[in-house]
Design a protein around this nucleic acid. Sequence first.
DNA 1: GCTCGTATCTTGACGTTGACAAGATTATCT
DNA 2: AGATAATCTTGTCAACGTCAAGATACGAGC
Lengths: 218, 218
Amino acid sequence: MAQRPATAKKSARRKGSDGYHHGYLKDALILAGRQILQEEGVRALTMREAARRAGVSHAAPAHHFASIGVFLAEIAARGFDDFTRTLDDARADCGSRSVAEQLCAMGRNYVRFALAHRAVFRLMFDRDTHTTPTEALEESASRAYQRLVNAVRDLAPDLDETELSHRVDAIWALVHGFSHLLLEGKVCHGDPTPENIDRQVTQAIRAYIEGLGRAPAA
Amino acid sequence: MAQRPATAKKSARRKGSDGYHHGYLKDALILAGRQILQEEGVRALTMREAARRAGVSHAAPAHHFASIGVFLAEIAARGFDDFTRTLDDARADCGSRSVAEQLCAMGRNYVRFALAHRAVFRLMFDRDTHTTPTEALEESASRAYQRLVNAVRDLAPDLDETELSHRVDAIWALVHGFSHLLLEGKVCHGDPTPENIDRQVTQAIRAYIEGLGRAPAA
DNA sequence: GCTCGTATCTTGACGTTGACAAGATTATCT
DNA sequence: AGATAATCTTGTCAACGTCAAGATACGAGC
């Protein structure tokens, strides 16, 4: 609904607000939530703490989020929206390079996003545990998924739907697994520099794409 | 409260125990924990609930687990042990087939384990959020990892360490990502039967291995 | 066989959380 | 202006993790 003004601080209140009504509480809570998530992890992200940071009483968030699960779902949904944006950026920055290279660029940004927003990324892809399934979350998530489908479809335009989805699944699995394991420190442990991470992701995607032309039909 | 079952039920007590001392409380708590995890997910897994199921007071678990995080770490560690076993089984059942096929078999069992033990699998690979880092957990986890390293080393025995770890990372990422996304229902959504899952995992691993011989050196 | 130290378990308490209810305050619509 | 709805506060509840203190049972050493 109401957007916060450009100069707003994290607990900014509506212009003219006299203290009782916050004005932009929903956004302020989500912002606080993302900060807590990034600083201290999911365990520390409570509605009361978010309320505290937004400068309101402990029960105020209930009027904007039916439960803590819905609150987390909203944060995850916004995470997916940002995520979709970085995937789009990756393709856009590729200019006229091959679709395979566009996929590699998307993979690199995928992993970078995971590293830059660890807790949000985990929240996004671990719904059942913390998050209440929400229509908005579902939509934001499938928008991101659609980016992958589109890229793979462009890579091999004359594939039937079954084979297409198999390849999307595999490339997605590769990149997603890499991101997830990287957050756990179980991958690239010898040299976890951004350059090396980029290189490994690129190599792995290329190898898979190359192999598609040769692999027997199972 | 202090029932003494003649036959060993899930809250079996030591032979001769008269009710005050449980006898096998640590194991009973872990068993209860795994049940809760499987039935109702991590959110429902509390020390008090585990104590309840084991038939002891709410503070009894504290004498076996310093904190809830350590409790969950113990469950995760045992999960890794089971996990390692299924990876070993996969290779053992392969007989004299090629190493590539052994890797595919391990991948299939990897995914099957994730599906069969959803909550435990998530706990195993999402340490920071719920689990306290423990020496036992670390060891159990790296034992499982070693199985993958060994298999890939057998696939390409004359690789230098850097290239070896890159390939281990990629194959692991592929299988792990597939498992993780499968739990989220974001993969194989058209046909999530065990047969199709097996087929897709096998195809993806084969394609990657095939591609290794062709991919340019980045 | 007995005693005593210790491991194990219980009871009780404290602070924190998510959630609910009822009341206070402000916004909005007619 | 007045009524209705939205928003926020205060107060409360059960459940949780954790700590402390006391009760009980085991087992090593005599």
